[in-house]
């Protein structure tokens, strides 16, 4: 299963005990109306991958999104994939397309400024 960090994702019904652990120990965010989960900066990604891979019986792969355009940053084809531990880095990155733009840094800074308003 692939989880895009910071973005909503769905899970099948996993039972009350697992749900409680996801909320209390893993500190995952849950939207009751939309019935979707979301990782936050407080989420323990180590525990999340251990728990979900155990109950879903499949590996959990984290990917991050591009902060400028919002698309998948493309972790699998990233030139730094061998040194980037997605469990340890913050939840946004840049996709190759945005990184190669001439004014990428300015666009990035503007996006942060817009979001904090």
């Amino acid at each position: 299963m692939e989880i895009l960090l910071g973005e909503p994702f769905r899970l099948p019904r996993l039972g009350e005990d697992v749900f409680r652990r996801l909320m209390r120990d893993v500190r995952l965010e849950y939207d009751r109306q939309k019935r979707v989960f979301r990782t936050t900066t407080q989420t323990d990604l180590y525990q999340l991958s251990t728990l979900l891979s155990e109950v879903l019986k499949e590996p959990i792969i984290y990917t991050v999104k591009c902060f400028i355009c919002g698309s998948d940053a493309g972790c699998t084809s990233c030139e730094y994939s061998n040194i980037c531990d997605r469990l340890l880095v913050s939840q946004n990155c840049l996709c190759k397309n945005c990184l190669n733009k001439e004014d990428a840094y300015t666009l990035y800074c503007m996006r942060v400024a817009e979001t904090s308003l």
Binding site: A73, Y80, I83, L88, C93, L99
Partner: peptide, 19 residues
């Protein structure tokens, strides 16, 4: 009120250094 910080992804360090 807790604000958790993590390491900076390599591409963003690259972006910062390049600029």
């Amino acid at each position: 009120e807790v604000f958790a910080f993590k390491r900076v992804p390599p591409r963003l360090i690259h972006l910062y250094l390049k600029s």
